[in-house]
Design a protein around this nucleic acid. Structure first.
Lengths: 116, 116
DNA sequence: TCAATATATGAATAACTGTTCATATATTAC
DNA sequence: GTAATATATGAACAGTTATTCATATATTGA
């Protein structure tokens, strides 16, 4: 299985691509982040949190599903640095981790031509 | 299970979140797009294609793995609008679908503080 | 301390997904 | 037409993941 003989241009691109491939660890981290925001329930949570920080039951009300399921998903989002949380009395308030998250959401929606 | 009594601010955020939740179909499409770019092998393909369009065997050389596995992954990326392709003789050249894809990659890497 | 509320978590099951292997299709050169 | 190269695909298996149910932890107010 030999590499095909393309124009010089394409070969250069292939070599450059191989040399500049991020190291395995970084690829895994980026992949994990995208996986975290790739499930409908978790994505709804992010759409909800666009409007500010919210406690768990408010999130449950906004996205639907059970409290347990939402809580499991929140843990995954938090473990992957997508959301952060702080306690306030009995409640734990969740919010988007930083401005990158919202930007990624908006880019994805722009790409798919869906108005959110 | 009643909704807790937060400050007016939080209740408003929750209601606004519910009202402005994108419709199920759009959530599913966005989720599918993120899922498409959430696997290490597929992500490596995107990192490779940053440098321009490449044929399948060049991609295989750049990211590793078998031709079959890469081809399967390319199909998923294409089906989700992440990459596009065009035939040129025996080869099929793949490239990132549009500028949004690269922007999302860069945002994710910035968020994770990894320099690519 | 006790009851009520809010949130988290462990285990189990069902569904999904990536890879491999074998093979099929398509294009080019002879 | 035939051989060689490039790419795609179907089936099967292994590994992963989301949900549910039951229960645990933590905070508040009495």
């Amino acid at each position: 299985m030999t590499i095909c003989n393309h124009e010089e241009e394409h070969l250069q691109a292939a070599e450059r691509a191989k040399r500049s491939m991020p190291k395995e660890e970084d690829v895994m981290r980026v992949a994990a982040s995208f996986k975290a925001i790739s499930e409908p329930c978790r994505l709804k949570i992010l759409f909800a949190l666009r409007h500010g920080e919210m406690c768990v039951l408010h999130i449950v009300g906004a996205v639907g599903g059970t409290q347990s399921a939402v809580s499991h998903q929140l843990r995954i989002l938090k473990a992957n640095g997508v959301v952060k949380s702080r306690r306030e009395g009995q409640n734990i308030l969740y919010s988007l981790d930083d401005e990158h998250i919202l930007a990624v959401l908006e880019l994805a929606c722009a790409h798919l031509h869906c108005h959110i």
